[in-house]
Amino acid sequence: MVFSIRRWTSRIVFIVVFTVLLFVVTGGYRWLADAISPVHPYREPKGDAMKVFLTDPDSPDSKDVADRLRWFYWYGE
Rank of each mutant, 00 (worst) to 15 (best):
E44V: 14
G76L: 06
S10F: 08
D61M: 08
A49S: 05
M1T: 09
S4G: 13
P38G: 04
A33L: 10
W71F: 14
D67Q: 07
V13Y: 02
F3Y: 09
D58Y: 11
V13G: 06
R43G: 08
D64Y: 05
V20I: 14
D34L: 08
Y29S: 15
V2H: 03
A35I: 05
I15F: 14
R43T: 06
P41T: 01
T26I: 14
P57H: 00
F72E: 08
F53L: 07
I12R: 10
F14T: 09
P57L: 01
W71D: 06
I36D: 01
D56W: 02
K51W: 07
M50S: 11
A49R: 12
F23K: 04
L21F: 15
Y73Q: 10
M50D: 01
A33F: 08
R43E: 00
Y73E: 05
V16Q: 00
V16T: 11
E44N: 04
D34S: 11
I36L: 07
G76T: 06
R7C: 04
T26L: 12
D64I: 09
Y75Q: 04
P57Q: 00
L54M: 13
F14L: 14
S4M: 04
W74E: 11
L54G: 13
G76I: 09
G28P: 08
V65K: 12
P45W: 01
